[in-house]
Amino acid sequence: MATTDADLGSPGDLDEGEREAVEHLLYRLADDEFVLAERYTEWQVRAPTLESDLSLSNIAQDELGHARLWYDLLEDFGYSESDLVWERPPGEWRHATLSEVPFAEGDWADAVLRSYLYDVAEGIRLSALEESSYARIRDRVPKIRGEEGFHRDHAEGWLERLATDSGGLDRLQSALDRLFPHALALFAPTDPEIEDRIDDLGLRTASLSEMRGEWRSEVEPFLSELGLTVPDADRHTPHGRGGDHTGDWDDLHDDFTHTYRELGRTEARRIMVDPDEAES
């Protein structure tokens, strides 16, 4: 794949094709984080112990914070939070289905395994953005990376503990069989032509298939070591990246936009400092 040393400059410097590629990339990043956080918060007040409740709450808030950082870069192009989150039709969201599928009640094995599958992919994806040709993206990577390391340690620690128990191992295997096709969806293209452009412009320094290969070579030995069998499965259809989702997504979307619609809101209230001001 072609990478380029050219720096694309600031948001106003992008031509139409460049901007489209940047937007696709940002939607992938932001939507994954937002929707997964939405699912994680389901564990608040429902986790196995008070301690695990606090930890998963932290992780959910970190992911929400990352979503906020990526959406903020889409706001560079004139979109408001309402356009990006509250009024965007469900069929225009680009997260992978791994983020949206619900947790069965009490299925903590799903929660920690999903977190592991996602966090490894997230780490690989962030590495590929460290040298992005678009400075706005590049500059936000270090802060996010720091937090993802903790998430991964947390997930691995839990997996190791659950896998020592035969019942726990069975639950992990059943979660893996279900989640693996959704995890492969993380590496699906939003639009194959635009994904090529993302690579050609150097927005990302590894292609989707390269990242998928790296991810598999990392998660498969780890999961096997735990005593799990990695399924020989294809990517889930629909995968989510193109805007097509599972039925669970419509329900989730309906639920999180409920108040905004009930109150007839037209804008989303900001109470926190803008990420750009917080950095300076």
Binding site: T41, Q44, V45, D53, G65, V85, T259, R269, I271
Partner: peptide, 29 residues
């Protein structure tokens, strides 16, 4: 309060609700 983490009508409010619910669990602890 936990349902309103999901049903808060802005990103910042959602974060604030999640943090508040987390604080309450921490106080319980």
């Amino acid at each position: 309060e936990r349902p309103f983490i999901r049903q808060a009508p802005s990103l910042d409010r959602k974060l604030a609700f999640s943090a508040k619910v987390q604080d309450e669990i921490g106080h319980g602890q």
